[in-house]
Design a protein around this nucleic acid. Structure first.
Length: 369
DNA sequence: TAGTCGTGGCA
DNA sequence: TTGCCAAGACT
């Protein structure tokens, strides 16, 4: 029995050593000695793998790690997540950004419970069909949790590949993506596709960085054609540049005793998140303009309206200039699509970072005292 | 296909 | 201060 198991392992090793690419051998050896100790790597079952992949879409490990830990603790299984309220999930997600990820995460948890009987789908196509799961995430889950041999191509892998194989075409073109996928299919370790994919990403994250890659510490620099040509700093090439638009937000912070008015965003930026009644304009309003608006709403301030300092909040594609107009009133609070809540319940509503920054400021704390 | 969707760290 | 960009997906 023992001899038989030994023989099988030996044959597997022989098969691997015959088919495995030298780049992959060195990459996997480096990975086994240098990989970071991350919680979802202890036991790569599909739920944790999926959860981690959603959290870390467009997000650095340092930035998302606490969020992953909190989500996993609050929702240990897909059933726990499926039966949660969306607002509660958004609250846990608050501050991490790209809030559609949280909404899709919750939606997909319900899909897995309802349509897949609580069992995470094991086929690549089924995984890809889940909301919030695109080509990269499906490949990552399939390879890590189910050992399906498919390259997971994220920003790290595009960068590492563009240098390794000297690909000068823009990496954000679909044709370039296909070229890199083909190259990776030639070197992926079909026995350990999850380790291969994670090793490529880890290399990109720790060594083959966007600026000043540390080629002297790279395990595959001997095979890196860009390094040999000395052009590693010129790769990758990108075609798109996102246009950043300026927008101006005037928030009305209307307070009556312990009550204040908040609204829920219905579309666009921060969809489903909460904020104060908002008046968007093509410039920050002057006090005189705010007074007119407040008169029209017949709010009847009992003190002078106080304007906060101006906030600048930068998104990937927007620059938001914001000012919070603080108003004390005795008028009963109500409004279209607005809800009056108790001050102490503010903490229970998921709000974007901009709103939290204001609420944590001295001017806001003083106003609410 | 190209624009939309956050936030924070770093040079 | 400014720009880059990160375990991308959706429409």
């Amino acid at each position: 029995m023992f001899a038989c198991v030994f023989l099988m392992n030996f044959q597997t090793m022989l098969l691997n050593s015959n088919s495995i690419h030298p780049i992959t051998t060195k990459l996997l050896y480096w990975y086994s000695n240098n990989k970071r100790d991350l919680p979802w790597r202890d036991n790569p079952e599909p739920y944790s793998t999926w959860l981690s992949e959603i959290v870390f879409q467009q997000t650095r490990i340092d930035q998302g790690l606490d969020y992953y830990v909190r989500l996993k603790a609050k929702y240990p299984t897909v059933y726990d997540l499926a039966k949660a309220d969306e607002r509660e999930v958004l609250k846990v997600w608050e501050g991490l950004g790209y809030y559609s990820r949280a909404r899709n995460l919750h939606h997909t948890a319900k899909t897995i419970v309802d349509k897949f009987d609580g069992k995470f789908p094991e086929k690549y196509e089924d995984i890809l069909s889940l909301k919030g799961v695109g080509p990269y995430t499906a490949a990552a889950i399939a390879s890590i949790a189910f050992s399906i041999s498919v390259p997971a191509i994220d920003g790290n892998v595009l960068r590492v590949s563009s240098r390794l194989f000297t690909i000068k075409e823009p990496i954000d073109k679909r044709s370039t993506w296909k070229t890199i996928e083909k190259q990776l299919l030639d070197i992926i370790d079909s026995e350990h596709p999850g380790d291969f994919n994670q090793a490529m990403m880890e290399l990109g994250s720790l060594i083959c960085k966007p600026q000043n890659p540390q080629c002297e510490h790279c395990p595959v620099s001997d095979h890196c054609t860009a390094y040999h040509s000395g052009i590693q700093n010129e790769l990758p090439v990108k075609a798109k540049k996102v246009a950043v638009k300026n927008v101006f937000y005037n928030f009305l912070v209307i307070n009556n005793e312990d009550k204040l008015l908040i609204t829920q965003r219905k579309e666009g930026i921060w969809k489903e998140m909460y904020q104060f009644p908002l008046f968007e304009s093509d410039a920050i309003y002057k006090e005189s303009e705010i007074i007119k608006i407040v008169e029209k709403l017949s709010i009847k301030p009992i003190y002078a309206i106080m304007g906060s300092s101006e906030y600048k909040h930068v998104l990937s594609h927007r620059k938001i200039y914001a000012k919070f107009w603080m108003i004390k009133t005795t008028k009963e609070l109500s409004g279209n699509n607005a809800i009056a809540i108790d001050k102490k319940d503010l903490v229970n509503y998921p709000m974007p970072r901009l709103i939290r920054r204001f609420l944590e400021s001295d001017e806001a704390i003083q106003f609410f005292m």
